[in-house]
Design a protein around this nucleic acid. Sequence first.
DNA 1: AGGATACACACTGTATACAATAAATGTCAA
DNA 2: TTGACATTTATTGTATACAGTGTGTATCCT
Lengths: 246, 246
Amino acid sequence: MPAVEPKRDTQTLKALLGVRDLVLGGGVGAGERLSEIALAQTLGVSRTPLRAALSRLEQEGLLELIPSGGYAVRSFTTADVFDAIELRGVLEGTAARLAAERGVPPARLAQMKRLLAELDNTFRDRLEDMLFDRYVELNAEFHAALAALAGSETMRREVERATHLPFASPSAFLEGQEDVPAFRQSLIFAQRQHRDIVSAIEMREGARAEALAREHARLARHNLDFVMGQDRSLMRRVPGLALVSE
Amino acid sequence: MPAVEPKRDTQTLKALLGVRDLVLGGGVGAGERLSEIALAQTLGVSRTPLRAALSRLEQEGLLELIPSGGYAVRSFTTADVFDAIELRGVLEGTAARLAAERGVPPARLAQMKRLLAELDNTFRDRLEDMLFDRYVELNAEFHAALAALAGSETMRREVERATHLPFASPSAFLEGQEDVPAFRQSLIFAQRQHRDIVSAIEMREGARAEALAREHARLARHNLDFVMGQDRSLMRRVPGLALVSE
DNA sequence: AGGATACACACTGTATACAATAAATGTCAA
DNA sequence: TTGACATTTATTGTATACAGTGTGTATCCT
């Protein structure tokens, strides 16, 4: 998802979501060229909105321009994925630090705490019973709210952009793994980090807020390591992971 | 400039550069809507490549989508400008830190040192005689090389993107101010910081490299403060500064 | 048989025409 | 005189046609 999703655009949005799903779903391999007319037919849109979507996905980092013209699916190294996660952590950390240093309006802080409480409510006594989808949804909301906490539109835009970099999403390695116990346990830890980040911001502890947010992003890296090292059968279930070469 | 500038595109590139110059040059005011047909006529291109350029500039952060359709020039607050500079510092700092932590191939390091030497060569005994344009050019090269030093394409792309955020460019507040003595003096300080960053990377001092790069970006903020506070007549000479409201 | 050149095909980049929607203006009524 | 509604205008989003260019293949020459 890009920083700001166009709403009413039916055709362009259709193309955007369609191509993204196709690429992340493994419909086209890494490095493969995308034929515009073929894609247009497949997705049921004309070339014009399709090209708009392709251009967008290129700036998003999912596609690359071919020197001779046209677009191809980017191929990623593990370093790319690690760095995308690192970037998200760094940017969210910066947003958290600035929020702490500058202070946030009480209403905003209350909203963050409400999100924390709602996240708590997704947990159950038995870990298997937790409301996983609801957690993923609220988690995305939390991170979006965090991006806006520093105050400026530019900061919000760019932090949210980093959040939607390929493989860097807070829920990138969550979906499709609800039934792995280790993942569910890591969510308890993640929620504790959420609380600590908000607490640090409230207490104006900028450096701590930054460090916590950075470390929080590292959870995604741990999950990635687990998926790629421990159990390669999981790789098929993580969207787009087939695009990672090594 | 976007992260990767399309080369052979004559019409789209023409539109991209044309609109950017028009907006940054003050041809259209902040918040003003951009009429596609009027722009197309002005720039001598058709609407198709123009729309591609507008979409690009929207993701660059210079324009914004109007809910009812079309694009408008974004209006910026001083907070936006500050945060854009801060973001560049943070991202360049991250690139520098990762480069230090991971180590850089000797050839790359040698290239950085060569750039440092060339930057040195732009200075003269009398500060007024320095090769200002050459310095700006080499400075841009230095920052581009720094972005690539961490190793991954994703990191390079995103750092370079931050470098081209509105008002965040390393040379944003340099051009058009060659004749202000205080600015020339600050360049001596900046070049010292360049050396220290490379040195820190070479000695694998990640935290120091990050801190130095962050502080280095602050020079732009100092320059901004100077331009806006001290001498408002300079504001007219800095591209796009008319888009900043307060 | 291998390589180079030429031709044909396919695909992208661009222009323009069309349709749908939002904005603006004018008129009618209260 | 002001407000609301309808009509007209303008502008964007979309589709398609065209042209230029790169790529692949086949044939011919060495």
